[in-house]
Amino acid sequence: MSMGILMGPVGLLFIVLGFVTFAILFERKVIGWMQARIGPNRVGPWGMLQTVADILKLLIKEDTIPSKADHPLFKWAPVIAFVPSFAVLAVIPFTDQWVFADLGVGLLYYIAVSSITTIGMLAGGWASNNKYALLGALRSVAQMISYEIPLIMSVVGVILSAQTLNLTKIVEAQEDLWFIVPQFLGFIVFFIASLAELNRTPFDLPEAESELVAGYHVEYSGFRFAFFMLAEYVYVFAMASLTTVLFLGGWKPVFGLDLVPPILWFSLKFLLVVFSLFWIRATLPRIRMDQLMQLGWKLLLPLALLNIFLSAVLKEVFPGVY
């Protein structure tokens, strides 16, 4: 039993690392195809080892620390940013058997713990003692805080329907109908807000490489930089899993196809979400800072509040359906 407790998370860590490796390759390939390019194809068959080579390069690079940097903070920031990204995976139910911590308040736990990463980004940008890094960090934090509110508000509809904060029970409440149908407005708000939380295009202002060099991690190199990137891609993994669990019915099969194992259903839905993230990155331009704030506060937040109101009213009027 104690071995299982230890080995489970270690296994998950390796699965996540494997996902990150191939997600980066997949992202580059998909964006390449959408822009009529080939994408990486030199290292290994079909470019399969491109990311492995990139990671190897990062790990053997010199670890530079600017002399005017805040040394202890500079070293700790990547750790503060990465640890919460992996800690949130503890509550994600991949199947009804495979969940590490079946917390009663799983959904809130995810949102709360993921907000700690913001401190890591802010500390990293601050400790670098570089104006681009600081600007990137401030933008990043402003964006994360602004979009966290619509993100939380948009899942309230799901919580109202499922009558629980436990992620396993939320999936079980979707036995007949996935929440993407009754909570469509909530899903749209959640998806846009999650794009912003993940700092992905069109919301990649914190690391806008064409205007801010690379944002908060401009002074980082080697494995510290790798940690920041890893944290971002682990969040892609976590957020895609959360979207699957909340709105796409988790491990529940489509059309009653019980033959396919639940974990495969989960993976398929999960990969669909990941693909749409890459798809959006390839097709949409980055939005401006003022547009970002307007979208968050003047459009998404009222829509999320409207969704809560509608969910509550519809739940009272048609208690069977919602």
Binding site: V105, L108, Y109, I111, A112, V113, S115, I116, T118, I119, L122, A123, W126, L138, V141, I145
Partner: peptide, 18 residues
């Protein structure tokens, strides 16, 4: 506990840092 993390660790600390 979760609300403590959400409000104090995630919110108030970042407000102070800002």
């Amino acid at each position: 506990a979760v609300v403590q993390v959400l409000i104090y660790t995630g919110g108030v600390s970042i407000l102070m840092l800002f």
